[in-house]
Structures are given as C-alpha cells and as structure tokens.
Amino acid sequence: MGKGMKDNVIISVKGISKTFGGLKALIDVSFDVHEGEIYGIIGPNGSGKTTLINCITGFIKPNAGQVFFQGRDITGLAPHKIAHIGIARTFQIMRPYYTLPAFKNLIIPLWSPRARKIGGWRGGGKHGDRDTVAVDILEEIGFERDSRVPYKLASTLPTGYQKRLELARCIALRPQIIFCDEVFSGLSMSEIASMLPLIEKLKMDGITLIMVEHRLRELFRVADRVMALNFGEKIAEGDYTEVIEDKRVKEAYLGSEEV
C-alpha cells in the first residue's frame, strides 16, 4: 500500500466498544480502510468479528465509538440507510430467500432505491428487466448461465453457490464497500481459489472489500492489509507477513488451531 493512499480513507472506525450484558464483545476498536483496498479482519471464534460488522452496518448500536464513511458520521443509522449510501454486507449465517429461485434472490437488492437510481449493469440492461440483470450478475459470480443452477430454488443450492449468492446480493446493490463475513470459511482451498478472480474483479471495479475470516491463510494473497482481533481487542495490524509473525496473534491461536 503506497503512502499516497493514506489520504483517501473511505471508512474510519474510531474506538468502537460493545458489551452484551457483562460480556465485552468489542473493546475500543479503531481502524481505517482506504478506498479500493482489500482489508482483512481475522480472529478466533467469538473474538467479535461479526459484532464489529454489525456495529458498522447499523444492525447493532455500539455502546461507544463512531463510524465515519467518507468523513460523514454514520454511527447509529438504520441498516437500510447505511446500505443505501453504499455499504453492503454478507451474513455469516447464510439465509437466502429460500422460497425464491436463485436469480430471483437478486431482484430484491436490484429493486432497492439505490440500485434503481444507479441502474444498468456493465453497460447493458440499462432499461432491461431485472431478471436479465440478475442472471448477468449470477453468471459473473460463477453460476453457469446455461445450466439450470441460476433457476434452482435457493434452498436447494450447495454451500459454495449459497456463499456466492450471498456475495451476488451485495454486488446487485452496486455498493462502494462490501463487508464479507466469512465467505471463505467452510469452502475447500480449491473452491476458495476459484473465487479469487471474482474478488480481484470487484477490486478492479473500485469496490473496497473488507474480508472477515476465521483464519489468516484464507486471506493469503488476497488482503492488502490485515487486522487481528482477540477477545474484542485489536491485537495487530499490518500486511500478511507482519501479522502472521506477530507474537500476540500466534498466542491467540495457540493450542486451538493454526493461524
């Protein structure tokens, strides 16, 4: 990451804390993400990764701290307002619209005021119907257009496709930032590898990605910078090699699992 990038901070999190009853899920977490970068967040189970995403995207109100998007304070805005200004997110527990076919799942974000305002998809479908745009997006994300997969009921899709669908739902919103909550976990290394070109493509499109993963190796060669959380506290930040060598990160994963 060049020094020049420092100026265009797109999202800035300042001193977020969140407690659930007596449990401190997040303690004074701060970080900045630059426009167009891929920022990784790792941490063992229960370290507060999902809670952090929930606080930023408005699903949970933090007890303290602020979130700035392009300099504007968005702390405590309703989730749909935060999505509307261009911050999309996936859910760790995938819940597609089960009763709808896969491509119809995208109709909902495509119908949203934001997507309707921006309109079109890769130049095409400007006035085209949403069904076509939906299949276009699914194709781009790895659903074979001519197969029956895009038309299958979302509940019958294998996990890999459901993860892609989760991401497709974000893309359909035409966001500036996507928070990905463990989109790689549960996938095999080869499945992850097959999704990498897609991530690269999103980056080329100028979308800032914040990828939350359980383990660091899943972010290998993907993330520009990585932050590590443990018991709700930020314990390290830097590029991949710095974080993997960090003593506190090693300790956090020690005994239980590999980084």
Partner: peptide, 22 residues
C-alpha cells in the same frame, strides 16, 4: 418484483434491510 421484495420481508428481513430497503 415489488411483491418479491414484500415476500423477502417474511423470508429474511435482515437481508432486505441490508439491501437498502426499509
């Protein structure tokens, strides 16, 4: 399309909110 959005509210209201729809 609008009917699908309404059905989405029943199916998965969190995802509808995350899609920028109230």
């Amino acid at each position: 399309d609008i009917g699908l959005v309404i059905r989405g509210v029943k199916d998965n209201d969190q995802a509808v909110r995350a899609s920028g729809i109230s």
